[in-house]
Design a protein around this nucleic acid. Structure first.
Lengths: 176, 176
DNA sequence: GGGCAATCGTTACACTCGCAACCATTTCCC
DNA sequence: GGGAAATGGTTGCGAGTGTAACGATTGCCC
């Protein structure tokens, strides 16, 4: 049987990854240089500007970030005086986060840049296409998530034995 | 003036980045575990299967990878016996790369998985939408690339002085 | 022909990232 | 009430990544 050839340049996941990379690099350039913000930091600020008072975990969920990434971003922002952190009185494990004035100032400068960028991007296509595109992103993301689980567990063939759903990462051979 | 609020969940670059992340994680799961392949290694194999004899630099261009990433991936693949490397006789700086039999075997196993994944993804939308989607990716990528350059140089206002195009990264404050 | 700039590839370094392990606190349940 | 399990958050660690610096080779040009 002839082995199918992948044309990387046409392979959908590859193209998406290139697009994502170009986009985030472009935007990051706009705030990284001027404010010393990393992408996770920027995401945290964006989420907390919109939803003040969230806990770290809630920020992680809203931004789809890893809890660790959030923790580190929050700590850097705190050190930089761009965030305030309190402890929830009803549950002293939870933190209550808010942007400080300095953080709000950063947001006021960066947000328009980001939105401008998005607007400029969308100018290259019609608004119908834009809506269509966003819809498809949603559909594909959802689909990819479902497939992801299936792939991790060993594709179409159901697991032969009752192995729990996750290969427990520790069993995965760590590289070199 | 009211500062515009970004709804991260709707922000296009963010959504693309999520999609890209979900996709590559899903596919990586399919070969990472079984073959100990990293994403860069897989890309190198894919490109060289399609275009045998390229140099490292050419692989980097075709796959949009960093030259360093290619160098490292190539070296790991060489150590694993999945690649052959010769030196171009006409230019002894250039390498001439080819997948070995072992590399080809990996490719024959992984490529169908990757293509299956792509197919499954596309099954969630109509073929018209798929074509549309791919076209839009192309348009947006190109656009983002152009905007990227503009952003790096300081937005709409043309540089006041004849500063060279790149802010020489070294001037960028290294974190901590 | 000889020096200088450009190019290919690698290495050093500083940083990021995510998982697992961990501590503190809270909830569950007997 | 008191231990076990769950949850929020942080830290340690192994590994990945990009930038800059580097050695080797080649091309340019006087």
């Amino acid at each position: 049987m002839a082995s199918p050839l992948i044309e990387l340049e046409r392979f959908l996941p590859y193209r998406i990854s290139v697009l994502a990379n170009v986009m985030s690099t472009a935007i990051a350039a706009a705030y990284e240089e001027r404010f010393g913000l990393t992408i996770p930091e920027w995401r945290v600020i964006a989420v907390l500007s919109r939803y003040p008072g969230l806990s770290a975990r809630e920020v992680a969920q809203k931004s789809r970030m890893d809890a660790v990434a959030v923790s580190r971003a929050v700590n850097r922002l705190l050190r930089a005086g761009r965030l305030r952190r309190a402890i929830a009185t009803d549950d002293r494990r939870r933190s209550v986060l808010e942007v400080s004035d300095a953080g709000a100032a950063v947001y006021r400068e960066v947000a328009p840049l980001a939105l401008d960028f998005e607007r400029s991007l969308l100018e290259s296509i019609s608004s119908t296409e834009g809506a269509q595109f966003e819809r498809l992103i949603g559909v594909l993301t959802e689909r990819a998530e479902r497939l992801s689980v299936r792939l991790r567990n060993g594709r179409s063939s159901p697991r032969k034995k009752g192995r729990p759903t996750q290969p427990t990462a520790s069993s995965r051979p760590r590289r070199r």
